Amino acid sequence: MTPNAPQRPILCYPHLGNSSCRRIVRSHSVSVLLHIILSSISVLTVTLNLLVIISISHFRKLHTPTNFLLLSLAVSDFSVGFVWVFMIFLINGCWFLGAGWCVFNSVLGSVATSASIGTVVLISVDRYVAVCDPMHYQTKVTKNRAKICIVLCWAGSTIFQCLKLNSNIENPGQFDSCAGECTIYIHPVGRIMNLFLSFIIPISIIVVLYVRVFMVAVSQAQAMRSHVTVVTLQSSLNVNRSELKAARALGVVVVVFLLCLTPFYLVLLTSGFGVKNISSYIFVIGLFYFNSLLNPVIYVFLYPWFRKCVKCVLSLQILKSGSSEANIL
């Protein structure tokens, strides 16, 4: 072969010739590094969120409406951990798992992220009621109501995402232009509905509710500094202090969530829902999924009970009789 002769493209399926997609060629070191990074993120996401799921499910003291919402968020984040596994298969631009698994990956990622968005909205509502109406919080926000809201959130997310991806579910692989591709088509109407239901409406609710919570927190702090305390309201003030502390902790979760979510939808909006820059698209969707790893990391720093639970789980103390009744708060 002469030095100036064009190199033949490396194909995903060489035996299929021109009907095969082209493989992305990277150096061995870069390919190994990407595999290590994505594998580590996947393992950590699954492991840390599994610890959250086990902790809240096992210890009865943690069976509160707020923690049930954290449990729902952990389940969605746990699912995203497996989406990272599928992303590893696309590092070289080739999909070898078949059209069915391609659709499954898209449905799993869509439902999990949609459910996490809905759960964060519920968390914001929970904190709003706890801080702005503490006297009626116990009656308005009960365990059963929290469970019902979580079930409705997951059911609604599953139904909407399946309808959005209906064409792909009914005919897997019909939108692939070559063998080894994993292409998902979403109708323009579905994209617009997804924008409103998964971004504009939820973000608006979250921002409005947390602005209100922040205003109450500021006024409460001012009242405490000026020592304006009525004896008859002392108990409600104590409730407010604990609820405000919880609101601040969950506020960190919400803010980090918004920082990871917003770039993804901004890229979609600025590109007119068309993927014009693959690199930027991969980065923002990776950032979106990376939030699933950050949530349990935040719990480690902000929740002492989670650190205690992790020690109990890793030391296998949860296997002891009566361990579920332990006071880890």
Rank of each mutant, 00 (worst) to 15 (best):
T142W: 05
T142R: 00
K143S: 01
N144I: 12
N144F: 15
R145M: 05
R145I: 01
A146G: 00
A146F: 02
K147D: 07
I148A: 04
I150L: 02
V151T: 05
L152A: 07
W154C: 09
A155M: 07
G156P: 07
S157W: 01
T158M: 07
I159V: 15
Q161N: 04
Q161V: 09
Q161F: 01
L163A: 10
K164Y: 09
L165K: 08
L165F: 05
N166V: 12
N166Y: 12
S167D: 05
S167G: 00
S167R: 03
N168V: 00
N168H: 03
N168P: 04
I169E: 05
I169K: 05
N171A: 05
N171T: 12
N171D: 08
N171F: 15
N171I: 11
N171K: 09
P172L: 08
P172D: 08
P172N: 01
P172Y: 02
P172E: 02
G173A: 01
G173L: 00
Q174C: 04
D176E: 02
D176Q: 09
S177M: 15
S177L: 13
S177Q: 14
C178K: 03
A179Q: 15
A179P: 01
A179Y: 11
A179D: 15
G180W: 04
G180N: 05
E181C: 05
E181M: 09
E181I: 10
C182P: 06
C182E: 04
C182A: 13
C182D: 04
T183S: 08
I184S: 11
Y185S: 14
Y185C: 08
H187M: 11
H187T: 10
P188C: 11
P188H: 07
V189G: 06
V189I: 12
V189D: 06
G190V: 05
I192S: 11
I192M: 15
I192E: 13
I192H: 11
M193P: 09
M193L: 12
M193V: 13
L195D: 12
L195V: 12
L195Y: 12
F196V: 08
F196W: 09
F196N: 08
L197I: 14
L197K: 09
L197E: 11
S198K: 10
F199E: 09
F199V: 06
F199P: 13
F199D: 08
I200R: 13
I200K: 10
I200Y: 14
I200L: 15
I201C: 11
I201Y: 06
I201E: 04
P202R: 01
P202Q: 03
P202S: 03
P202L: 03
P202V: 07
P202N: 03
I203T: 15
I203S: 14
I203P: 02
S204P: 11
I205A: 11
I205L: 13
I206A: 07
I206G: 02
I206K: 06
V207S: 01
V207Y: 02
V207K: 03
V208S: 14
V208M: 13
L209T: 06
L209A: 07
Y210L: 10
V211M: 01
V211C: 06
V211P: 02
V211K: 02
R212Y: 00
V213K: 07
V213N: 07
F214A: 15
F214D: 00
M215W: 08
M215T: 11
M215H: 14
M215P: 07
V216H: 12
V216Y: 09
V216N: 07
A217V: 05
V218N: 00
Q220R: 14
Q220S: 15
Q222D: 08
Q222C: 08
A223P: 01
M224D: 14
S226A: 02
